[in-house]
Design a protein around this nucleic acid. Sequence first.
DNA 1: GAAGGTTATGTTATAACATAACAGATAAGG
DNA 2: CCTTATCTGTTATGTTATAACATAACCTTC
Lengths: 151, 151
Amino acid sequence: MSRIDRILASAEQHCREQGARMTPRRRQVMNLLLAQAGPQSAYQLLDQFKDRYQSNAQPPTIYRALDFLVQQGLAHRLSSTNQYLACDHITCRHGHKGTVFLLCDECGGVQETPLAGAAVSELEQTLDTLGFEIQQEPLLEVHGRCANCAL
Amino acid sequence: MSRIDRILASAEQHCREQGARMTPRRRQVMNLLLAQAGPQSAYQLLDQFKDRYQSNAQPPTIYRALDFLVQQGLAHRLSSTNQYLACDHITCRHGHKGTVFLLCDECGGVQETPLAGAAVSELEQTLDTLGFEIQQEPLLEVHGRCANCAL
DNA sequence: GAAGGTTATGTTATAACATAACAGATAAGG
DNA sequence: CCTTATCTGTTATGTTATAACATAACCTTC
Ligand SMILES: [Zn+2]
Ligand SMILES: [Zn+2]
Ligand SMILES: [Zn+2]
Ligand SMILES: [Zn+2]
């Protein structure tokens, strides 16, 4: 059983628990996300989807699947680059309080990492003081240069 | 001297110090941003720009001015909503380390607030450990409901 | 104050990203 | 079954952003 198959199985497990349906289309898109090292745009995914699964597929097919996967926390959308990627922590279910994405502007790679606990509670306190009710776990997108590219 | 004029003067001062040119076009776009309470899309700004300054203006006119203002730290781009707004702290020059935007999904309003210092240094430490060199001050966009709309 | 480099703007066209709307198919529950 | 909700196919369109090239304004240096 490959790495991808393991993660897919974990994702299906997650969906069953949530009463959500992991349909063939959604699994196919998830598979495309997992097959790729870096983040991809919706239209890149569409091209691959057409190559691999359904040559006449249209944008809504991809966007719907992505919306579903993002809602389920199985994938993430990077709003600063309009890209999507599979969650790097599907098998370990730690949630996404204070998740940080390190986006390398040089190689295009992304690293997903949790933020230290204290920083998260500080943020929560700030919001609390202002009476702001959070509705989606906030994701921080940090642009820069990764360790590899800095060499 | 109105509030807007004061901020514009401060913005020009900032540009002079940076050796950047606050041209008429850029000042006009800045003025539009300041005249508005909430964030606006580039095309909304374009419409206002056409109404008010130049009826045949095209998208690049707005995008170029916005890019300049964002680079100078006089305005911000909210990537999660594709909107732009004037910086709320132009006159007090505190920089933008750990700036948080609270976006109310109900009324569309935005509040710009600094994040507590400890949280910022925790983030820096996390990046440091991973050998990631930050290149743009990261902005955190938090979606939810503001105190006013929660009543 | 003319020459030549640099930065900003005008202009046309198009690329890239995303969704509305409706019809038809498939699954879940009684 | 039959009903209802959800998912998918399909067409069209809306929204956001930039490429590319021409022209104009600015700034230095001679
Ligand atoms: Zn994740
Ligand atoms: Zn890199
Ligand atoms: Zn600001
Ligand atoms: Zn509100």
